[in-house]
Design a protein around this nucleic acid. Structure first.
Length: 568
DNA sequence: GGCTAGTTGCCTGT
DNA sequence: ACAGGCAACTAGCC
């Protein structure tokens, strides 16, 4: 029982990995029993299936595991990759390998919290000790919630900034580098018998070399070759997974251009640039290939070192990191965070359920080129700009299609490389004006918004190539092009490219009226909790765009509200 | 109870 | 580039 095992889940890195460092310490303390340090990742069927993770992100994960394995083998160690339920698999291997201590990085997602609690109990019953560290986020969410002192987390960014100012910044002095950690592992590996033992027989714990090694994904590929065609291309991926790629990208986007870092303002970046206008470090943060604490420290240092002014939260790069922490505390402290029903911070809104509208959105066939280009980039490349996410999320929910944010979040969760429980569900609530943001009358135009940063429509030309010959005055709204022009451009609207599935002006105004009704119903429920009134489904036409009807709908409720509060 | 601020809306006019 | 109208939201703080 003298060996240790570090369990990788997120945190797929060696640098700044305090739980892994603890595992090294545990092994160092052992003497004489040829203790070994094992590294394990478990492909849990809970997420490792084509229904839960799109091919791009699975590829990214495998590359991240391959990179870890390569690094470890360089110093005489290796990564073991097992398949199955980790609560079943890990304790079995721990016994087989005479492991006395297991370490992992804290994961605050509901599934992970539940799984890890089961793992603790299971290991405890086997007499195996557990050591964990918080290093996926900059702050410890449980400590932040204690300091906050309320049962529900702060839902405004400003109050969150107040909270972290009160708590203070964590001390991030001695973040270990990958080289330091590898050297320490190398010293442990020397003379260890375990590495040699494994060379006998078939190795069932190798990192899968590609998606095609996984039967479920192979079956998907055979079922839908077109969908997976981009995976078979010989071109290297746009965003390769792994710690090496993470550190290289960090160097390229951050270290190499301090002036750009210091002047970064998120709203000034472009959602439809052909080269990403932001860092695209998010996939690496999601899997922990890059340490958020390391990035935070580097950004802080770059701001300090330069002279003159630098940008500030919420729009600066440090501000982006704080948004991440903000959504993490919300995901940690909100019951049923990923749902509307049962989520105390989420407005209850009677979203429609129209499969045709939803599928058209998902497939990028709405007839709005800007939206369809975004959805195509998402599906094929796995990353879209933050503001592109805004535009398409608003379009699906309160802007145009009036479909549930939960269904939109599922699509993002499937296809995004950086799909993150906290930020994905939080931002969908934000964009649908269900939580965090409530100015529902500010609606993104699927035609006008993209023109500001891409007047020529080059982004559309790339991702919706049917329209590539359209002149710029029609490319954002091709249905307005004269029939002769459509013909000469080789793309007839309604035949070669869909007609718009909604009239944006009509739909968005009708939806604003529905939001008004839904908000009023939520207000009544809040002020009169004994009246368990579910939000009324409303037809767009019944409220319509008539101002007087809206007034009548709204005014009496104000009075009732006053009467209700007056009772106190 | 009132006031203010809120990561990044759109459109028109200057 | 920026201001104001649009018709008007909520949370947080006083």
């Amino acid at each position: 029982m003298s060996s240790s095992l570090h369990w990788f889940r997120k945190g797929l890195r060696l640098h700044d990995n305090p739980a892994l460092a603890k595992a090294i310490e545990h092994v160092r303390k052992q003497r004489g029993n040829s203790p070994h340090l094992y590294f394990l990742f478990v492909l849990d069927p809970w997420f490792a299936s084509p229904a839960k993770v799109g091919p791009n992100r699975y590829r990214f994960l495998l590359e991240s595991l391959q990179d870890l394995d390569t690094s470890l083998r360089g110093v005489g160690s290796r990564l073991h990759v097992a398949k199955g339920d980790p609560v079943e698999v890990l304790p079995r291997l721990a016994k087989e390998w005479s492991v006395g201590t297991v370490t992992w990085e804290v994961d605050t997602e509901p599934y992970a919290r539940d799984r890890d609690e089961k793992m603790r109990q299971r290991l405890s019953s086997l007499g195996i000790s557990v050591d964990t560290c918080v290093s996926h986020t900059i702050w410890d969410m449980s400590a932040l919630m204690r300091a906050w002192g309320k049962s529900l987390p702060p839902t405004s960014y400003q109050s969150f900034l107040g909270l972290v100012a009160k708590v203070g910044e964590p001390i991030l002095k001695d973040l270990s580098s990958r080289e330091e950690v590898l050297q320490a592992i190398g010293e442990l590996s020397e003379g260890s018998r375990a590495t040699k033992k494994e060379n006998k027989g078939v190795d069932e714990y190798l990192v899968p070399a590609s998606l095609l090694d996984l039967p479920a994904f192979r079956a998907e590929l055979e079922r839908d070759p077109k969908e997976y065609a981009h995976l078979l291309s010989s071109r290297p991926p746009l965003f390769p997974g792994g710690e090496s790629a993470a550190l290289a990208r960090f160097h390229d986007k951050i270290t190499r251009q301090p002036q750009w870092v210091r002047s970064f303002e998120k709203p000034m970046t472009s959602p439809n640039a052909l080269e990403p206008s932001t860092t695209v470090l998010s996939p690496y943060l999601k899997f922990g290939c890059l340490s958020s604490r390391f990035l935070w420290k580097q950004l802080t240092d770059i701001e300090k070192e330069g002279k003159g002014k630098h940008s500030a939260p919420p729009v600066s790069l440090r501000g982006q990191m704080l948004w991440r922490e903000f959504f993490y505390i919300n995901s940690y402290g909100t019951p049923n965070y990923a749902k509307m029903v049962g989520n105390p911070n989420c407005k209850q809104i009677p979203w429609g359920s129209d499969e045709k509208l939803f599928d058209a959105w998902k497939r990028g066939e709405t007839g709005f080129p800007f939206i369809d280009a975004i959805m195509t980039q998402l599906r094929t490349e796995g990353w879209i700009h933050h503001l592109a996410r805004h535009a398409t999320a608003c379009f699906l929910t309160r802007g145009d299609l009036w479909q549930s944010w939960e269904k939109g979040a599922q699509v993002f969760d499937l296809w995004l490389l950086d799909a993150d429980f906290a930020m994905n569900n939080g931002n969908w609530q934000w964009l649908s004006a269900s939580c965090f943001f409530y100015q529902y009358f500010r609606v993104y135009s699927p035609v006008a918004f993209g023109k500001k940063t891409d007047p020529n429509g080059d982004y559309i030309r790339k991702y919706v190539p049917q329209l590539s010959k359209y002149p710029k005055q029609y490319i954002f709204e091709p249905w307005k092009a004269p029939a002769a022009l459509q013909k000469s451009c080789g793309c007839i609207i309604g035949k070669d490219y869909p007609s718009p599935i909604v009239d944006h002006d009509v739909a968005s105004k009708a939806n604003m009226a529905k939001m008004n009704v839904a908000y009023s119903a939520n207000k009544q429920k809040d002020t009169m909790p004994h009246v368990n009134k579910s939000p009324r489904p409303s037809e767009g036409g019944s409220v319509g765009t008539n101002d007087t009807a809206g007034e009548e709908e709204y005014e009496p409720k104000r009075k009732r509200m006053k009467a209700a509060t007056g009772k106190r």
